[in-house]
Amino acid sequence: MAEEILLVGRGLTKRYGGVTALADVDIELRAGEVLGLVGPNGAGKTTLVDLISGAQTATAGELTLRGARLTGPASRRARAGLARTFQYPQLALELNVRENLLLGRAARRHATLWQMIAGVFVGMVRPRMAADDEFVRAIADELGLGGLEREAGDLTLGEQRLVEVGRALGQDPLVLLLDEPFAGSDARGVAGIAEVIHTVRRRGHAVILVDHNVDLVARLVDRIMLLNQGRVVFDGDPGACLSSPQMQRVYFGSGADDDEAGDESAGAEVQGVRS
């Protein structure tokens, strides 16, 4: 079975004034693939996620999703099939878990202006539907999350991340972007998130997983991209990544400071993997 290419990014670049956060990054994601995005602090991982999801606009470069160009504000890209979580969880803290989990599904019914206006009247007439409750219950089961009537503000950080991942899953995305979902999670949280990743893959959709914890990422993904100082320095098999010289250089600093050479070899590596 031919693996369809879902997401393609070419020459993605982000500059803030004189600082280059992301330089000419290419990215490709196949259906059913889980891609790990690792690198030290400030490597440009979150910037890349932001450029793809539309939270920030790219200085240069272009994106396609299933062959269609991916442009415009985050909301349009979300409707095209992207969903994401945030490095700092963005939950409505005064809403309960059930309502937070419902957001993705609710958003799909309020995509256009007319739906937003109609939503006022529909909401007044039928505020709560059994189908919505069942939908939320299914996601919560998958996450292993109970206590749906608790306020999100009362949850631990790990639980908040779990809720956020579940909310993104509720959008039934083609590409799920997870930005550091494991920070603050316990074993149960990690299991829940792993379950979500598995579900998305089973649906034939793709995941981009960003995290510091390279070992954890390597266990969950099909492929790893290693970023350093806004550039891709490795793109390939997780096992190979852990033992690669690029990995050594980025995380342990051996053979540092020959940026030129490093970039060239990284380029060669990327080429090698692609062909």
Binding site: A55, A83, Q90, E99, R105, G119
Partner: peptide
């Protein structure tokens, strides 16, 4: 209602609403 859920999320987490 779902409309209310979105609007109330807008208050604390507008980025999440946009991303949805």
């Amino acid at each position: 209602s779902p409309w209310g859920v979105i609007v109330r999320t807008m208050r604390d987490a507008p980025r999440a609403v946009e991303a949805a």
